[in-house]
């Protein structure tokens, strides 16, 4: 689906979303009220210029005391790989974007990431994975690292990696694998009204960061939830 199709299906009552090159800013109307919309689209990499523009929008929303949810449409490449971005401290810009989303959430704006295309590595962490709830559309294809690069680093041929990937969701790219490790809460049905699916999601309260529990239930991450809870129990005494 294109961003326009997604927005039409999400907000049949109307939306005012404008594009600045590959970024989206605006709002949509649900029966339950307004939803702030931001987006990183076009499978473009996220560099300092994109990150700072997105965080500005998030912080502006945060300063409005309307407690309206933020929907973040995501279809990106990885972080921008360049001398300039690293020279100017891309890690700070990406972290700042993530912090802004977390602050917005703490201020009562539910943050929903909607992954409808690609996303990878640091860009994925600072956008989709920094939202309180991450959902995806079928066909989304998150990846931490592509198999050819992984083959280079592990010195294993791609067919060998593909074979290993059948036994575990823990390393290979792809939506199903990210769901199984607990990174994506729901995969929506593109054939149904997205508006209804978003409304239903917003009606369900979010219970903290439950990604590890979710990943454990699906045998994608068997240890994370138990290890983190044990440390919390021992250290939190």
């Amino acid at each position: 689906m294109t961003p326009a199709e997604i927005l039409d299906s999400l907000f049949p009552a109307g939306h005012a979303v404008t594009a600045e090159i590959d970024l989206l800013f605006g709002r949509g109307m649900l029966e339950s009220g307004t939803v702030h919309v931001i987006g990183a689209t076009g499978r473009a990499p996220i560099g300092i210029d994109q990150a700072i523009r997105l965080s500005a929008a998030v912080l502006e929303i945060t300063s409005i005391d309307d407690a309206a949810p933020i929907l973040f449409l995501v279809d990106t490449a990885s972080q921008r790989m360049s001398r300039r971005d690293e020279l100017l401290g891309l890690s700070e810009y990406l972290a700042h974007l993530a912090k802004s989303l977390l602050l917005a959430e703490a201020r009562g704006h539910r943050t929903i990431g909607l992954l409808y295309g690609g996303s990878a590595a640091g860009a994925f962490i600072a956008t989709a994975l920094a939202c309180g709830t991450l959902v995806a559309l079928p066909g989304a294809h998150p990846e931490v690292m592509d198999l050819p690069s992984m083959a280079r680093v592990t010195k294993l041929p791609i067919p060998v990696l593909e074979e290993k990937a059948k036994a575990t969701p823990v390393f290979a790219p792809g939506l199903d694998n990210l769901v199984r490790v607990g990174g994506i809460a729901e995969v929506w049905d593109a054939g149904r009204s997205l508006s209804e699916q978003l409304t239903a999601l917003l009606a369900t309260p979010r219970a903290g960061d439950d990604r590890a529990t979710f990943g454990s239930a699906q045998h994608g991450r068997t240890k994370a939830a138990a290890v983190a809870s044990e440390i919390l129990a021992v250290a939190g005494r």
Partner: peptide, 8 residues
């Protein structure tokens, strides 16, 4: 890398 999705 060997547990990239879990690490991410």
């Amino acid at each position: 890398l060997q547990e990239a999705n879990a690490g991410e």
